[in-house]
Amino acid sequence: MDWLTSLLENPGITTALPDAIIETLIMMVIASAATIVIGIPLGVVLFLTAPGGLTPVRWISAILSGLIVNITRSIPYAILMLALIPFTQWIVGTGIGPYAACVSLTIGTVPFFARLVETALRDIPSGKIDAALVMGSSRFQVVRKVLLPEAMPGIMAGITTMVVIVIGYSAMAGIVGGGGLGRLAYNYGFQRFDSQVMIVTIVIIVIIVQAVQATGDWLTRRVDHR
């Protein structure tokens, strides 16, 4: 009971925790939404322009796949977020806070998510694309009416994986100014040796991640008619 009483009186929990949760959720929602909006078209373009794709364009494929996606994916997120601080200041006007963190979170997860989208599209049997073409679909119709609906279970599973990774990255971004649960754990749990805050933070992050995973799995099953 003592532990619980001191927990409810701990300012790290009573004052800082609610704000930290909200900041983490802000980073999760905005960065995930931005990643979906940029990553799905990018994944489609990667799939279409790849050699043997529906509209192979070597130079687009080389630039997108080789340079941007592969190189960005090779940079560890901890380094990427630091390197992007000047860019973030230019875009958002500040380098700190959850909104600023969304810039590096989005840039860090888009290449990875685009690859997941591309893989989901590649899993569609080529006979279905042939069938769509034979029936007189334009390329745009093939993408909108066949490729994306058919790949939706894979894309939905990819979104789930991506959101979980954004939560993980957001903790890292939090330490260098993003705020949220990552900074709470660092400031209280690490620097002040407040193990209570540390444990509570971990429990809350686990709950958020499990909720995201369960929702994602449920949505994936809903759209999967295979």
Binding site: P125, G127, K128, A131, A132, P149, E150, V223, R226
Partner: peptide, 8 residues
Amino acid sequence: HANLFDSR
């Protein structure tokens, strides 16, 4: 293999 669309 019919090549029906599974999502429809």
